[in-house]
Nucleic acid binder design. Structure first.
Lengths: 210, 210
DNA sequence: CGTCGCATTGATATCGCTCAAATCCGGTGG
DNA sequence: CCACCGGATTTGAGCGATATCAATGCGACG
């Protein structure tokens, strides 16, 4: 499956020391990984699927704190805290890598190189999350597509091979699928982007958009 | 000034060891903190004002990677990298705390407690950034206001004292000021929120919105 | 072959943006 | 004390981009 190939990328970036203690777990749609109030014991990395991290108020009001997708960590706060102050639920069939917080703590204390790697890893997550944030702050679907290509695309033409469906992509951009289809068609016609199959790249024309 | 008081909060959370080597610097609107290609020497924390972190493509295309406001770090990637692959420009009169990357690296290597603190700090940034991200993913101004109160508000009523103007607040929510005024008025009338001066809190009624 | 998910296009509704104008407020100078 | 000013706040009217609802084609899969 395509998934395993993609997955390897960021799992391999995990410090070796961690992969020893980590184990993967699978959840079906709707299953909860942990619940608000549980003792915080582990940090998680989404290998495949999607986990929604939510917090409930006193009267049951729900707030979404994070949509963790493939490659995203969640619950790294377990390093500090004693109890989860949020719940994590798989929104579809999902596989995660479960990393015991105690293992990370020990490594942080003992292994200097690991500390650097971990800091580096958090930094990466921070950067990509910030980029997503700025992307959603943009008005207009075209600007977001362009921003995505500029930040996630590789090579001189900012090429991106979409791992998943355009549906998923639309959701990631914060727009509905129909809008994405229309936007991509318009941008392609205007020469702003080029499309071949599931590959997107910037076109020759410079974007004249904010 | 109000600023100093607010600022203390997160500056005081900085590990003591860092505050020794850090120094604050001021930039006027439009001044650049560092430029793409410069040698990466420091990590920054915005004390007041705003810094925009951008990257330029080969043909001059610009992408915004981060809008760093009070309390946000930027350029923590300096820990790994040798050169900045982005530029940072003050968008208004701004004061930042400049933290030499070498100092952080040394501390990471030497001081185990510091490593934990730093990891914890990054984790906080990550969490608040994620929350912002999910907020912008919400449709509708009211949902975003509610999300903001739920995530940033304190106490049983999720109270928030707005440090800045409603203008600023609107911008933070990714909507224009007019929309925010109207939305707040509508929500207050509906009993969803309560307002007294620059303080906002959730109302008695439960929000019946997604 | 029926079903399901994805891709695509059309028609319409709605929310928020834009432009515009009035009020309020603190500060400033005459 | 008053006139004036700039910035923040508020309300109004109209427009436009995107969501929504709907329908179709298409390939995979059982």
């Amino acid at each position: 499956m395509q998934g395993s190939g993609e997955t390897r990328n960021f799992v391999e970036r995990l410090p070796d020391a961690l992969r020893a203690t980590a184990q993967s777990r699978s959840y079906r749609k709707g299953a909860s990984v942990f619940n608000q109030g549980d003792v915080a014991q582990a940090i998680y990395l989404v290998l495949d699927g999607e986990v929604r991290v939510v917090r409930f108020g006193v009267r049951g009001e729900e707030v979404i704190l994070q949509h963790a997708r493939r490659g995203d960590f969640f619950a790294e706060a377990s390093l500090d805290g004693h109890h989860y102050h949020c719940s994590a639920v798989a929104t579809k069939s999902t596989t995660v890598l479960r990393i015991p917080a105690s293992a990370v703590r020990e490594l942080l204390d003992r292994d200097v190189r690991f500390a650097r790697q971990w800091v580096s890893l958090l930094g990466q997550q921070l950067r990509t999350t910030r980029a997503r944030l700025e992307r959603l702050a943009l008005r207009g679907a075209a600007s977001r597509v362009r921003h995505y290509l500029m930040t996630e695309g590789v090579g001189p033409h900012h090429e991106v091979r979409l791992g998943s469906s355009l549906r998923q992509f639309a959701h990631e951009l914060g727009i509905v699928e129909e809008t994405l289809y229309r936007t991509l068609a318009r941008m392609e016609k205007a020469g702003l982007i080029e499309r071949s199959g599931s590959t997107l790249r910037l076109g020759r024309k410079l974007a004249s958009m904010t």
